[in-house]
């Protein structure tokens, strides 16, 4: 519904600008944004906002794992903005000389425990209730897995997962389907799952924060637009959308 409203707004804006003296539609400029998969819904809605504020500009997104996006950038994929779910992957892009200037932090994400709706295995937290139960986490090496390992270390708990997934969404779907008894995901994933899962907050989760960083690429031919998009993300409107999805908690 929100998207629909935004679309209507966009059409109205478009219609208004078309009635203005310089006849004919403005030439379309494309702004390509590479963003971490976890930013999918929030960035899509910010893209719509951006297009509404910049007639004649079309924002195109490519959502994937941050590491995969860096690989694509290295291989010469054309992008104007890159938003990474962690500093490590942004550092890879920066040290490869792909970014213009220093990227900046725009939000954070923390981990949480989720269980299927109804909590069939009666999990109470990162404690003895997990013994012998099917816990699914992210694999060490991918951002959410590295964070999980660090958090477990800091909290002094030993996790015995039955599966270590490459993508956080694979953890989420395994809990949603009830295949797993519990999973460790980001707060934003838990929120996106809605009532398919029950969230059990991990006390001390804020000790490990994933920093989301954004920057313009060096090869961008739309430097001004890229900067404007980054401003939108970091500004009050962007932060509002991100907070609504659970970011920066």
């Amino acid at each position: 519904m929100k998207k629909f409203a935004a679309l209507v707004a966009l059409l109205v804006v478009g219609a208004c600008s078309a009635t203005q003296p310089p006849a004919g539609p403005a030439p379309t400029t494309q702004l390509v944004v590479f963003a971490a998969a976890s930013l999918n819904t929030t960035f899509a809605s910010l893209g719509t906002q951006f297009e509404a504020a910049h007639p004649g500009v079309k924002v195109t997104f490519s959502f994937d794992g941050s590491a995969a996006l860096v690989d694509q950038l290295k291989a010469g994929a054309p992008a104007d903005v890159f938003a990474s779910a962690d500093k490590a992957n942004m550092d890879k892009a920066t040290s490869a000389g792909l970014m213009a200037g220093a990227p900046s932090l725009f939000t954070t994400n923390v981990l949480t425990l989720i269980v299927p709706a109804g909590n069939p295995a009666k999990i109470t937290g990162l404690d003895a209730s997990l013994d012998g139960k099917k816990l699914v986490v992210c694999a060490d090496g991918v951002p959410c897995g590295t964070a999980t390992k660090k958090l477990a270390g800091l909290l002094g708990v030993t996790l015995k997962p039955v599966s270590e997934e490459t993508k956080v969404t694979d953890v989420r779907t395994k809990v949603e389907s009830g295949q797993a008894d519990a999973g460790i995901v980001y707060v934003t994933d838990a929120k996106a799952s809605g009532d398919k899962v029950k969230t059990i907050a991990i006390s001390g989760a804020d000790k490990v924060r994933n920093d989301y960083v954004i920057g313009a690429t060096k090869d961008s031919k739309q430097a001004a637009l890229a900067a404007a998009f980054i401003e939108l993300v970091k500004g009050p409107d962007g932060q509002k959308v991100l907070a609504a999805a659970g970011f920066g908690a």
């Binding site: 794992g65 590491a67 995969a68 690989d71 699914v136 694999a139 090496g141 991918v142 997962p161 039955v162 599966s163 270590e164 997934e165 490459t166 694979d170 395994k174």
Partner: peptide, 22 residues
């Protein structure tokens, strides 16, 4: 699922390593 020695076969290990070490 994907767990070393139990369910993580060669293609799954490749999929994981693609994210970690090309």
């Amino acid at each position: 699922g994907s767990l070393q020695g139990t369910t993580r076969t060669l293609p799954l290990e490749i999929y994981l390593q693609r994210e970690v070490d090309t």
